[in-house]
């Protein structure tokens, strides 16, 4: 089990690193996809089927495609001529380290409160569905409304105005 974990972790980290260091933007997008896939497999390894499949479906199936489309439709597909690092890489590093520290701190603290021998709860997809439409129905509906509004907005932005010559 640990071997599988290490392989997946290596894949994810390598994907993430490649995404920020590669020069070709499309390669970066594909590397991000590899990282997404690694993450999804990590979820699956933890027996979180729904999260894993949703990760594949949403991130690989939609977000990665969206990113790739955005790269191709804008002029970002050209290879960067100079280095890929921005001038403010130091600030970025500090911020990333800070975020990592906060996350690590939170994870370590939550580990204290959990007893290590507690069995992982078996969560079926059905339970998630039930929870979504009973206890969390209000947040779900709000999110749905927000997304619909965003979509309508996007359609309006993309639409030609009346009288506007094509």
């Amino acid at each position: 089990m640990t071997i599988v974990f290490w392989i997946l972790a290596a894949l994810t980290v390598a994907g993430g690193l490649a995404a920020v260091t590669l020069r070709n933007t499309v390669h970066c997008a594909l590397a991000v996809t590899a990282a997404f896939a690694g993450l999804a497999l990590l979820f699956l390894q933890l027996d979180a089927q729904f999260a894993g499949f949703a990760q594949i479906l949403v991130y690989i199936g939609a977000v990665a495609i969206l990113v790739v489309f955005a790269i191709l439709l804008t002029r970002g597909s050209e290879t960067a001529e100079h280095g890929v690092f921005s001038r403010t890489w130091l600030a970025g590093l500090v911020i990333a380290a800070a975020v990592f520290a906060v996350l690590g701190w939170a994870v370590l603290r939550s580990a204290d409160t959990l007893s290590p021998e507690a069995a992982a709860p078996a969560v079926a997809v059905k339970d998630i569905g039930n929870a979504l439409v009973t206890r969390y129905v209000l947040p779900l509906e709000i999110v749905a409304l927000l997304l619909t509004a965003a979509m309508v907005g996007a359609v309006i932005v993309a639409m030609h105005e009346k009288g506007d010559t094509k």
Binding site: F53, I56, L57, I60, G61, V68
Partner: peptide, 25 residues
Amino acid sequence: DMDAGLLFFFAIGASTELSIFMAGW
């Protein structure tokens, strides 16, 4: 026999798009 077999199927199906894009690009 996966609890979320259908979801798995569609998740996998969605990733074929990326390979087609890779081929074309």
